[in-house]
């Protein structure tokens, strides 16, 4: 399976990545070659094999339901470029 420039830009847009026009060729080739590897793997018969959800052969440990965290707003908001009235400010999003 190969992908074309249109596929590349769609995937890049979904991931919010910008790709320079001159890099389009290089990325399509690189991604196509990864997909060829996937094609090869697809050829292996996997009937009756449960899809692997995780590479580790272990199951999820559960946490007791209790509040262990305290308010860290002041510390955490020092990382943000803009805050006001306790809110993180971001460029306007309009529905």
């Amino acid at each position: 399976m190969t992908i074309n420039a249109e596929d590349l830009h769609k995937v890049a847009h979904l991931a919010r990545l910008s790709i320079e026009p001159e890099a389009t060729e290089r990325y399509t080739q690189a991604l196509s070659s990864i997909l060829s590897l996937v094609d090869e793997m697809q050829a292996v018969p996997t009937d009756g094999v449960q899809p692997m959800a995780h590479p580790m052969d272990a199951t999820q440990r559960l946490r007791i339901d209790e509040v262990t965290e305290t308010n860290q707003r002041e510390t955490l908001q020092r990382l943000a470029p803009a805050t006001e009235k306790g809110l993180y400010l971001v460029p306007r999003v309009v529905e």
């Binding site: 009235k85 809110l87 993180y88 400010l89 306007r92 999003v93």
Partner: peptide, 14 residues
């Protein structure tokens, strides 16, 4: 997301 006016920005409460 709070879309009231924050100088043209959106406020986020997580």
């Amino acid at each position: 997301s709070l879309h009231e006016d924050f100088h043209g920005m959106t406020g986020v409460d997580l």
